[in-house]
């Protein structure tokens, strides 16, 4: 697996906090710690799956990777350049190399622009292609995502959800990026379409040598597409490991609980399987618990968990866990 050796993106202690303002004078009274200290690497050509419950901060993390949100703290290296501290101009220059595919293909396309202009807009901004070349490029992109070339002059609302997501992908590919954040790209699609889109993403990855950060709450889909998987809980990564290790021997109690919730297609196994049902709700990210974030719901929590925050430590080769008890 030599192709995965080179690190493309490296997040170090990335934090995104959203301030909370209250009162007549709208003073800041606290902050929502949506992403609270992420550390991970994404290697060139691989797909890193990012999973977690709704509200755990995975979408925020994904957007922070492209600096669509300003980081509150931390460093984000893209090929060794810290994009968290780039000025807007330099950032815009690097933008073509990192793109994003969004969850809602309807909302993420400007309703007043034709498909052609949506795809071509970044070309106008970042390349010096002639009109003719641009047109050709747009058409070839449509080909690449399996769409009819003649759809150039249509508006997004004229397409189905799957088609729109293909447009979204074509749009993301327009500038030949290296890194694409896929933010739940299939969550809003029919199940029948989901597989098509995922296969398309894999095809393209192979053809163009792309690196993905694939955000999803669908563990089985992540298992299908990802090379490595990171599990997030309340703004932090609780476990990060090779997909095989993670699914076979999950170390963190939260990962175990998540995986136990995935139904097994065999009814006999399913019936006998032990389900770990978590008690209570996810605490508010504005007011996370002391110690381990998961301690309020953890079935095995000990006193230490409520006082000391566990570090993300490398348990086995390539398997990182943030739990005092994991061995």
């Amino acid at each position: 697996m030599t192709k995965h050796d080179q690190v493309l993106v490296k997040a170090q202690n990335v934090k995104v906090h959203f301030p909370i303002h209250k009162g007549i004078l709208r003073r800041q009274v606290g902050s929502v710690k949506a992403v609270d200290g992420l550390n991970f690497e994404i290697r060139k050509g691989e797909t890193l799956g990012l999973v977690g419950e709704s509200g755990c901060g995975k979408s925020t993390a994904g957007r922070a990777m492209l600096r669509l949100y300003e980081l509150t703290e931390g460093q984000l290296d893209f090929e060794g350049v810290d994009i968290a501290s780039l000025d807007p101009k330099a950032l815009r220059e690097i933008r073509p190399r990192m793109q994003m595919i969004f969850q809602d293909p309807q909302a993420c396309l400007n309703p007043r622009m034709t498909v052609g202009s949506i795809i071509a807009e970044p070309l106008d901004e970042h390349t010096n292609l002639s009109t003719e070349e641009k047109r050709e490029k747009v058409k070839s992109l449509l080909d690449a995502v399996g769409m009819n070339r003649d759809f150039v002059n249509r508006y997004p609302h004229e397409f189905s959800g799957g088609q729109r997501q293909r447009i979204g992908i074509a749009r993301a590919l327009a500038l030949d990026p290296d890194f694409i954040v896929c933010d739940e790209p299939i969550a809003a699609l029919d199940v029948s379409i989901q597989a098509q889109v995922v296969n398309l993403l894999q095809d393209i990855q192979e053809r163009m040598g792309l690196t993905y950060l694939f955000i999803s709450h669908d563990l089985s889909m992540v298992r299908h597409i990802a090379d490595r998987v990171a599990v997030m809980y309340l703004g932090k990564i609780v476990e990060l490991a090779d997909k095989r290790d993670l699914y076979k021997t999950p170390k963190h109690p939260y990962t175990q609980a998540l995986l136990s919730a995935v139904p097994v297609p065999n009814p006999e196994v399913e019936a006998k399987r032990e389900h770990i049902v978590l008690q209570g709700d996810v605490p508010s990210p504005a007011n996370p618990p002391k110690g381990c974030n998961f301690c309020t719901r953890c079935p095995v929590a000990i006193d230490r968990c409520r006082v000391e925050e566990p570090e993300l430590r490398e348990l086995n080769k390539g398997q990182f866990v943030a739990c005092h008890l994991a061995e």
Partner: peptide, 13 residues
């Protein structure tokens, strides 16, 4: 709206 984020992601000013 998401399309605004898309536009930013495209690297538009």
């Amino acid at each position: 709206q998401d399309y605004v984020r898309t536009a930013r992601a495209k690297g538009m000013s």
